[in-house]
Design a binder for these strands. Structure first.
Length: 272
DNA sequence: AGACGTACCTGACCGC
DNA sequence: TGCGGTCAGGTACGTC
């Protein structure tokens, strides 16, 4: 379900509930996700204090005392929710972590998510984390950087900004939205973007992600934050899911195409 | 090396 | 009402 703004929303909502809490018990109900869950997860997590919680790309990282980090990825349909101690498990609950006075529930119908436990000081060597590009909201993500990594790439620009090796956190929705804001067609090849285009695109990616975070993410289908609140950025989409509707700038129809099997929305008149 | 297709899954929705 | 087909926010991997 989530792109960077949704993961960030979950993280911020979780923070007051979990940081400083101690794990009383971790129960594995259904150990099958994208990767098998660590077989000794229950033992590894027992009695550990949660020192901090952070985000890298779309991964949520629970830093535990004793040098371990619990890594969680929500995939397409993963949810991390805070529940009361009398919570009863429902379909697709995979893991339930009991804290002092709350439960943390991981539910994931499609099982594209991921849970792992790694040594905190070896996070950067982790197979899934070691090849990730820069965070789009950090100062290291600049037009000069983007221009450099795109210069030899023949792929569509939309596919490029969704490639986690180039930059992280931008998924299918915000890729379309950022390209619209930048006035750049998703059908441009990455290596045709000039520095000037990259300046517009970097700025648009940052603006779109910030705006979405400020709206609590996007709740299309069933995204709900940990605290049960829905995000409302979906009401601000300019192009995503609006095939055939009027462009808000030029009033010509927004077009839906497929690129690498993924829906892409854009305005052929405004995006060149 | 880079580009592209495929695979992993369930559920919601649409048209008949 | 029920059925089959299609689509969905992610990402790793195999193959060319």
């Amino acid at each position: 379900m989530p792109e960077l703004p949704e993961v960030e929303t979950v993280l911020q909502a979780l923070k007051p509930h979990v940081v400083g809490s101690t794990i009383a018990k971790a129960s594995v109900l259904f150990p099958v996700l994208r990767l098998p869950l660590p077989h000794n997860m229950t033992e590894l997590l027992a009695s550990k204090l949660i020192i901090n919680i952070k985000r890298r790309a779309k991964y949520i990282m629970f830093e535990l005392e004793g040098g371990l980090t619990l890594l969680v990825h929500l995939g397409m349909t993963g949810r991390l929710t805070v529940a009361n101690l009398d919570y009863l498990p429902v379909k697709h609950d995979h893991v339930i972590i009991s804290l002092n006075d709350k439960m943390l529930v991981y539910n994931d119908p499609r099982r594209f998510g991921l849970i792992d436990i790694i040594e905190t000081n070896k996070i950067h060597e982790h197979k899934l984390l070691c090849n990730l590009g820069p965070e789009p909201l950090e100062s290291e993500f600049t037009a000069e950087y983007l221009s450099e990594v795109l210069k030899n790439r023949q792929i569509f620009i939309k596919a490029a900004i969704m490639d986690g090796k180039l930059l992280v956190g931008v998924g299918n929705i915000y890729a379309s939205e950022a390209l619209f804001m930048a006035g750049i067609s998703p059908k441009r090849k990455a290596n045709t973007l000039h520095l000037q285009d990259c300046e517009k695109l970097v700025s648009s990616i940052k603006k779109v992600l910030h705006a979405a975070i400020n709206s609590g993410g996007s709740s299309i289908r069933d995204f709900v934050s940990t605290d049960g609140n829905k995000g409302h950025f979906q009401h601000h989409f300019a192009v995503y899911g609006k095939g055939g509707k009027e462009c808000q700038i030029c009033f010509k129809p927004i077009v839906k195409i497929y690129q690498s099997g993924r829906a892409t929305f854009f305005c052929p008149n405004c995006q060149l």
